[in-house]
């Protein structure tokens, strides 16, 4: 969902620093440029029809009153009462999920970088394969694993863990377990790529200068993989915002997320305006996430520059 949002924005940013209107005209008159623009036409038309138009019609729907005319009623409705609770729950679950999948993904990716290539491939497969199984089968799988009489709870009861069995399904814990398992491949793949790029020589150098393992990790390794961590967590968060299937399967009514609410409004209540308003809010939240990513990157660069100076 995030990728196509970014795609059309980038060329616009790239052409913007064309020095003034005169420079722009000169650049457009070039033969190569004209040829380039001609080549771009199909893509532009494609995006206009299938991307820009639907987004604008959604925007229009979201500010259209029931008897026509302009209104912000749908936004007001989306931002109060149970609808607001759902929005907040969505943000909370997304944050919890990205945090958890960051921690687990970090450990997993780190472990994989230390494995031999063959084993690393196998572990990757284990991480990714569950996502090719149908949602229904996975639901039953989760019930067998996490239910009151599931594998996990039976084991905990067998070990006489105090408080067992725990309720791990149909509440927020269930949802976060489910969404984390779905998000894990993204974080693991992102972090793995970054970790593979870390120069082991730097670690060795830190050790040779007398840094302990903890200091090496904190002062050398963590800053090197920090961009990956930021990317992974923001990506996770944004993907989670629009999440639908897993929360519906593994949560209760209190874990309703915005996507499920939109589905409900369209399919059950035939309420397209309200659904559009929720969609636009979701889109804005996604943009906010991307903006945050940019800010983090800028801050990181600034710090590095200062460090270099």
């Amino acid at each position: 969902m995030a990728a196509p949002v970014l795609a059309p924005a980038e060329p616009a940013v790239a052409t913007a620093p064309g020095s003034g209107p005169g420079g722009l005209r000169r650049r457009l008159s070039g033969r190569r440029t004209r040829f380039g623009l001609l080549n771009a036409t199909p893509v532009v038309v494609y995006l206009l029809v299938l991307f820009i138009y639907p987004i604008f019609s959604t925007l229009l729907l979201s500010v259209e009153g029931e008897d026509g005319g302009f209104t912000l009623h749908w936004y007001a409705d989306a931002l109060q009462g149970t609808n607001l609770d759902i929005l907040l729950a969505t943000l909370r679950i997304s944050a919890e999920t990205s945090l958890l999948s960051l921690v687990i993904g970090f450990l997993l990716a780190y472990w994989i970088t230390r494995l031999r290539p063959l084993w690393a491939g196998l572990v990757m497969l284990v991480v990714v394969v569950p996502h090719f199984i149908s949602a229904l089968v996975r639901t039953y799988g989760w019930i067998i694993l996490l239910g009151d009489h599931g594998l996990v709870n039976e084991a905990l009861v067998g070990l006489h863990v105090p408080g067992a069995p725990f309720q791990l399904l149909y509440n927020e814990i269930g949802v976060v377990i489910g969404t984390t398992s779905v998000m894990l491949p993204y974080t693991v793949l992102l972090l793995y790529a970054v970790m593979r790029g870390v120069d082991r020589g730097l670690i060795a150098a830190a050790a040779s200068l007398g840094a302990g393992r903890l200091v090496t990790f904190r002062r050398v390794y963590l800053p090197l993989v920090a961009p990956g961590l930021v990317n992974a967590s923001v990506l996770c968060f944004i993907l989670c915002l629009g999440y639908y299937v897993t929360p519906a399967l593994m949560g209760g009514p209190k874990q309703t997320m915005v996507a499920a609410l939109i589905e409900e409004q369209v399919m059950k209540n035939n309420q397209w305006n309200g659904a559009s308003a929720h969609g636009v809010i979701l889109l804005l939240l996604t943009f906010a996430g991307l903006l945050l990513l940019q800010l983090f990157k800028k801050a990181g660069e600034a710090r590095r520059n200062r460090g270099a100076a």
């Binding site: 779905v182 999440y243 299937v245 897993t246």
Partner: peptide, 11 residues
């Protein structure tokens, strides 16, 4: 997201 995509495909 993966979920959703698979479901859309199935759909």
């Amino acid at each position: 997201m993966k979920d959703v995509r698979i479901d859309r495909r199935l759909f």
